[in-house]
């Protein structure tokens, strides 16, 4: 099977302002409440990200990290452990992505959420809880400072420092080759799919 590279979709570097929101177990209902799932397109999802935290009793919560001045220019989110737990709703990563987030640094991710991010081209990388605290401290002192995530070198650049991150190797390769939207590579092996179809006896039961 030939190596597929989709040049125009290659993602190897994300550089931009970072929002810090490092509570653990932030769930998909926090990110996008269920009532917004009634929209049949993802167009407006960016308007709803963390909406019930950001607006209380009709008033904007000024201290919310996504409400701070400059937050709408952010490309990177710093999060805690088990980020995106809960529902499989793709609306959650869509909301973050449409808000402007292209990469998330967390201690760990809920699986379905991380898979959904990959499908959209949102890069998810993990570091230890100590590094999360360190980055959070840096961003507290330097609000919305720029970070850089280099997928080739597996490094985060924060100020003068370079910090190594983790991510599933398969996903990293998919971003580097532009095949993170798996539709193209899933369509390739027509023979392989036919072989399974012909050999799964229960399909005829």
């Amino acid at each position: 099977m030939s190596e597929l590279i989709i040049q125009e979709k290659v993602i190897d570097n994300i550089k931009g302002k970072a929002i810090s929101k490092t509570a653990n177990d932030q769930n998909t209902d926090d990110i996008v409440p269920a009532r917004y799932l009634k929209e049949i397109t993802f167009e407006k999802m960016g308007e709803y990200v963390y909406i019930d935290e950001r607006i209380k009793d009709g008033n904007k919560v000024e201290e919310h990290p996504f409400n701070k001045s400059g937050a709408s220019e952010a490309k990177i989110l710093l999060a805690g452990a088990n980020y995106g737990c809960g529902s499989s709703r793709e609306h959650a990563p869509q909301a973050l992505h449409k808000f402007g987030i292209n990469a998330i640094i967390a201690e760990s991710f809920a699986e379905i959420f991380a898979g959904n991010c990959a499908s959209l081209g949102v890069v998810c990388v993990t570091v230890s809880s100590e590094i999360i605290s360190k980055l959070a401290e840096y961003l507290e002192k330097n609000p919305l400072a720029e970070l850089e995530i280099d997928l080739n070198k597996k490094m985060i650049t924060c100020g003068e420092e370079k910090i190594e991150f983790d991510m599933p190797e398969g996903r990293r390769q998919a971003f580097l080759k532009g095949t993170w939207d798996a539709m193209a590579i899933l369509q390739q092996d027509k023979e392989g799919i036919k072989k399974i179809e012909d050999n799964l006896e229960y399909l005829s039961y």
Binding site: E3, G170, R171, K177, A182, I185, D189
Partner: peptide, 10 residues
Amino acid sequence: VGELPTGQTQ
């Protein structure tokens, strides 16, 4: 079905 070039499984 097969192993994908990304290392994931189809």
